[in-house]
């Protein structure tokens, strides 16, 4: 009876044959679920976009003009706080009933992968919008705009990948706002330092071969974190 009610709630994806699906099919369905859910509660998405824009505007009003070095660092700090807020809600927004239902029907690997992919998409949207608005109010010449954009894309992927697992951990404890910050900041700092260095290289228009080191280490860390997330998430998920 109870399951029937839940299926009714979730009827936008064909749940009944879900358990027999392959991982890729589950992934597709779960991703669709995430997007539909986000679209249903648009205020959350709009809220996070507005959060970035107003933070940038606050910085603009308080700084007026910034030196190139500060320009770069400030951008990444804004992105850090925005992404913590954006990703933190990814596990909290699901009701307990729905989580139980998903637990019984989908594999944890598919769930964490769908969350990671969804968060990457969200972060890409967020960071593209942020850099557009940020460079609109703060004028700063970029030496190598393409590489800077590349560092932003790499940055949003790194933020999404690292914060997704931490959000899963923090969601299990009740005061997840503070916990999310203290758990994720030390973990993200090495990535953030690499990103700031990479984007500084791009800003100064250095030769691209100089930056290969950073790009390589960042990609390696991301792959490593995804692998660890896949291994560990089943233990967080089991309640």
């Amino acid at each position: 009876m109870k399951i029937q009610v839940l299926i009714k709630v979730e009827d936008y994806v064909k749940w009944i044959i879900f358990a027999g699906m392959s991982l890729t099919k589950q992934l597709k369905a779960l991703l669709l679920k995430e997007v539909v859910l986000e679209w249903r509660s648009r205020f959350a998405l709009n809220g996070i976009l507005l959060y970035v824009v107003s933070t940038i505007f606050v910085c603009y009003l308080s700084f007026r003009v910034v030196a190139p070095l500060t320009w770069n660092a400030l951008f990444w700090i804004i992105m850090l706080f925005a992404s913590v807020n954006a990703v933190a809600k990814s596990f909290v927004q699901e009701s307990r009933g729905r989580q139980l239902y998903l637990y019984s029907i989908a594999s944890p690997k598919a769930i964490i992968l769908s969350k990671i992919i969804y968060n990457i998409l969200l972060m890409l949207l967020l960071s593209i919008m942020a850099i557009f608005f940020y460079s609109l109010v703060f004028k700063n010449p970029l030496g190598d705009p393409l590489l800077y954009l590349c560092s932003i894309l790499l940055g949003s992927i790194s933020f999404a990948v690292v914060f997704t697992l931490i959000a899963g951990i923090a969601a299990k404890a009740n005061n997840s706002g503070t916990l999310m910050a203290i758990l994720s900041f030390p973990v993200i700092i090495p990535l953030l330092m690499l990103l700031i260095k990479l984007s500084k290289n791009a800003m100064d228009g250095l030769d691209r071969t100089v930056s290969y080191d950073e790009i390589g280490v960042l990609s390696l860390i991301n792959v490593m974190v995804i692998a660890v997330s896949l291994l560990l998430f089943p233990y967080i998920w089991r309640d």
């Binding site: 404890a173 030390p186 090495p190 490593m224 560990l232 233990y235 967080i236």
Partner: peptide, 17 residues
């Protein structure tokens, strides 16, 4: 369980750091 997961997750980060 949860703290074990965080412990395993943070060890490689410490090595990188």
């Amino acid at each position: 369980r949860i703290s074990a997961v965080y412990n395993i997750f943070s060890f490689p980060v410490m090595i990188v750091l």
